[in-house]
């Protein structure tokens, strides 16, 4: 992939990737770093970046790893500063933000990270099972099972929290954009 081809991939994928990262990141500063790091990796490995719709999925998969590394660093930092933050919160009388009062959001945040990941790839990025499998680096069957279980767990916990939601059993697979275009 030469510079012009990379620029074309960048132009097509920049906004979807920015959205993907912003929706999963605590701050816009961190999001900017992660988007920059992801595209830098892509440029470094330009020969391996696939063409067409697959390029965006490759970038999502790379951003996912960059985010995971970022979060690992955050966790280490949070562990170091746990006592200090506790003191500061007590001093400031911090109260939960408005988002914590919304039961759907609260229940969602209490789900396991793996459940939230597949649910948001469907609902926020609009990906199908095969596309998610590409991003996560696992089989379609694994994604179907994870998605089914995640929807079921979310629905169960919503009901336990008093949120009435019908839960039609999720289909085993979804077709993404690339597959629909090709079929």
């Amino acid at each position: 992939m030469d510079e012009d081809e990379f620029a074309a991939v960048y132009a097509q994928a920049y906004e979807p990737l920015l959205g993907y990262v912003l929706r999963r990141c605590g701050s816009v500063d961190d999001a900017a770093d992660i988007v920059a790091e992801t595209f830098t990796i892509a440029w470094r490995r330009a020969a391996e970046v696939p063409g067409g719709d697959q390029a965006q999925l490759w970038l999502f998969g790379t951003a996912r790893r960059v985010l995971a590394n970022h979060r690992r660093g955050e966790r280490r930092h949070l562990l170091k500063t746990a006592a200090l933050r506790s003191e500061l919160e007590a001093m400031s009388g911090a109260v939960p933000g408005p988002e914590d009062a919304a039961p759907v959001g609260r229940v969602f945040r209490e789900l396991a990270e793996a459940d939230r990941e597949v649910l948001t790839l469907v609902a926020w990025e609009g990906l199908g099972v095969a596309e998610i499998a590409t991003v996560l680096g696992c089989s379609r069957n694994a994604v179907s099972i994870r998605l089914y279980r995640a929807r079921r767990r979310f629905a169960r916990r919503l009901r336990a929290a008093g949120v009435d939601t019908p839960y039609p059993a999720a289909p085993a697979g979804r077709l993404g954009r690339a597959e629909r275009a090709a079929s």
């Binding site: 132009a11 920049y14 906004e15 959205g19 759907v104 649910l119 926020w124 939601t165 019908p166």
Partner: peptide, 23 residues
């Protein structure tokens, strides 16, 4: 409530694609 699980999750997104621009 008639929203599906996916709709509920979609409603939690802090940023929507249509709000994003390349500057």
């Amino acid at each position: 409530m008639t929203a599906s699980i996916d709709d509920l999750v979609a409603g939690l997104a802090t940023v929507r694609d249509e709000e994003l621009t390349s500057g």
